[in-house]
Design a protein around this nucleic acid. Structure first.
Length: 211
DNA sequence: CTCCCGATAT
DNA sequence: ATATCAGGAG
């Protein structure tokens, strides 16, 4: 069975067990999604959502973030980790949004990834969630699962993106990634994958060692 | 490649 | 104690 056929089978199974796999970050505007996704680097979505609740009642626009006191913003997002980098990036990012984009969010990869703290993963998620533009969203789960399943042999996120683009039907690109996240959290965990109860084990090339 | 970094599960 | 969490920049 080739990789495309494997993915078709896996998608069919995922459709059954994760019928509405979607972004688990809470947001009420494109700006909130952009910032929450930046905060989500090496942090759980659950933690980001807790921080975001107070954050967005305090800062209501790109201008508010651009004018924020940096030390205060650092404390406001501290529990998400990497808080100095994140605060600096968010403030500068919002300064650019205000000055160059009239407070709106750019609609293409080049302009998005030019923003401080915004890489391809964040850009792909925003492009899909806000504008419906399909993309392979490569986070830690997509990276781990696509390697375990055998869809790529690369550890490089951008290479994984292109590998999966060739294998997954385009209309399911973002969907498939959301489902990899759901499956990564529930079954195919980083530390202790539960292969014995994995619904797609027949289509996976991963073998658990010492078991 | 390294660094950023707190919270949580194991 | 240590690995890991919807990464990005230098």
């Amino acid at each position: 069975m080739n990789k495309k056929e494997k993915v078709i089978h896996i998608l069919q199974i995922f459709d059954g067990i994760y019928p509405n796999a979607e972004c688990t970050l809470d947001y009420k505007s494109p700006l909130q999604l952009l910032i929450s996704t930046q905060l989500a680097a090496q942090c759980t979505d659950a933690r980001v959502n807790i921080v975001a609740k107070d954050l967005y009642s305090k800062y209501k626009s790109a201008e508010d973030f651009a004018n924020a006191d940096i030390a205060e913003l650092e404390q406001d997002i501290k529990s998400t980790g990497f808080y100095r980098n994140k605060a600096k990036n968010i403030k500068e990012c919002c300064r650019i949004l205000v000055d160059k984009y009239n407070g709106e969010i750019p609609t293409n990869m080049e302009e998005l990834t030019a923003l401080p703290g915004v890489g391809r993963k964040t850009a792909n998620l925003v492009l899909y969630e806000i504008y419906g533009i399909q993309g392979i969203i490569v986070d830690t789960h997509a990276k781990r699962l696509s390697n375990r399943i055998g869809l790529t042999k690369s550890e490089n996120p951008e290479k994984i993106e292109y590998d999966l683009q060739k294998i997954v039907p385009k209309e399911r690109w973002a969907d498939f990634c959301h489902m990899l996240v759901s499956h990564g959290r529930a079954v195919c965990k980083a530390r202790k994958p539960e292969c014995e109860k994995c619904e797609i084990r027949d289509y996976c090339s991963y073998i658990v060692k010492n078991n």
